[in-house]
Amino acid sequence: MVPEKAQERCSKQVQDFSRCCKESGILMVVTCQKENSALKECLMPYYKDPAFHAAGKMEHLRKREELRKTGIPIKKRLWKLPTWKYSNDAQ
């Protein structure tokens, strides 16, 4: 939970690093050092922040409690069924 939230907050650095890795292929270890450093610099404060971890833990516990109550994971509960629009024009 914490890594996903931190990556959301550092989305620009994640995108830059991902793009560099895709473009560089096997040479990414050498060519993407700048992007990797920028990503680490952005993520580390979140990984070291106890309040950030506590918030992630509370969210995880809330989701687990909901799962135990309903038996349905939150992701599946949030799925929406497609809505179909019917036209009276077709005759």
Rank of each mutant, 00 (worst) to 15 (best):
L43W: 02
C42T: 03
E59R: 15
V30T: 12
A54V: 02
A6K: 03
Q7L: 08
E41R: 13
A6S: 11
L67D: 00
R64S: 07
F17R: 05
K75W: 15
N88H: 07
K80D: 14
S37G: 15
C20P: 00
R19V: 00
P45F: 10
Q7A: 13
E23Y: 15
K12C: 02
S24K: 12
W79H: 14
K48M: 10
K75Q: 15
L61C: 04
S37L: 15
G56D: 12
Q13Y: 06
G25Y: 11
P50A: 03
K57V: 05
S37M: 12
G56N: 14
K48L: 07
P50K: 09
L67N: 01
C42M: 04
R62G: 00
S18N: 11
S24E: 10
E23I: 07
R77A: 11
V2L: 04
E59S: 06
R19E: 02
A38I: 04
K63E: 10
K63F: 07
V29L: 07
D16E: 09
R77V: 09
A55L: 08
K69N: 00
R62E: 06
E65F: 05
M1C: 10
Y86L: 08
S11V: 14
K76Y: 09
F52W: 03
C10S: 05
C42A: 02
C21R: 07
M28A: 11
E66R: 04
E4R: 11
K85H: 00
Y46A: 11
D89F: 06
G71P: 00
K80T: 13
Y47S: 03
C42L: 01
P50R: 14
E65W: 05
V29D: 01
M58H: 12
G25H: 12
